[in-house]
């Protein structure tokens, strides 16, 4: 009886029929979980270190934040006026130590107001210096 020594080799195939189904499932997952929205905000230059070392001269502009109003050098101003006054100081052409704007906020002032004022100071190239009361006072 003749035996053929040659084994018939079967054609080997990787089953790839369901690849595209898996791929489309993954795409749907990514589409649902991805947020296209870009982050917006601003970098704040908050000086680090001891708070008492913050240069507080008479000339240092101070923004006072209270629950119901905003003060610039103790005079009530609107946010637009604050922006105009800070831009008029041309901080960009000054050395960093001369660009400090002190932010004196009351304890109950909400972040929305704080954020707006910080964005205005930063847009005017100012450096935000945070004034805070010492504990116990």
């Amino acid at each position: 009886m003749p035996f053929s020594l040659r084994k018939r080799q079967r054609e080997s195939r990787v089953p790839i029929d369901s690849f595209s189904d898996i791929a489309f499932l993954l795409i749907i997952f990514f589409i649902l979980t991805t947020s296209i929205r870009r982050l917006t905000g601003f970098n704040t230059e908050l000086p680090a270190g001891d708070k008492s070392a913050t240069p507080t001269t008479e000339k240092t502009p101070t923004v006072g934040l209270q629950v119901d109003r905003v003060l610039f050098n103790d005079s009530p101003v609107s946010l637009e006026e604050l922006k105009t006054q800070l831009l008029a100081r041309k901080f960009a052409s000054r050395p960093p130590g001369d660009r400090v704007v002190l932010l004196d906020a009351g304890a109950e002032v909400v972040y929305q107001v704080y954020f707006e004022v910080m964005s205005i100071i930063t847009a005017a190239d100012g450096v935000v210096g945070i004034l805070s009361e010492e504990e116990g006072k």
């Binding site: 908050l46 680090a48 906020a105 909400v110 972040y111 929305q112 704080y114 945070i130 805070s132």
Partner: peptide
């Protein structure tokens, strides 16, 4: 930070980042 959070609550976090 949530827009309605008071300064006494969020400022320690800001200080912590800067420190």
């Amino acid at each position: 930070c949530d827009l309605n959070v008071a300064r006494k609550v969020f400022e320690p976090a800001l200080d912590a980042i800067v420190s």
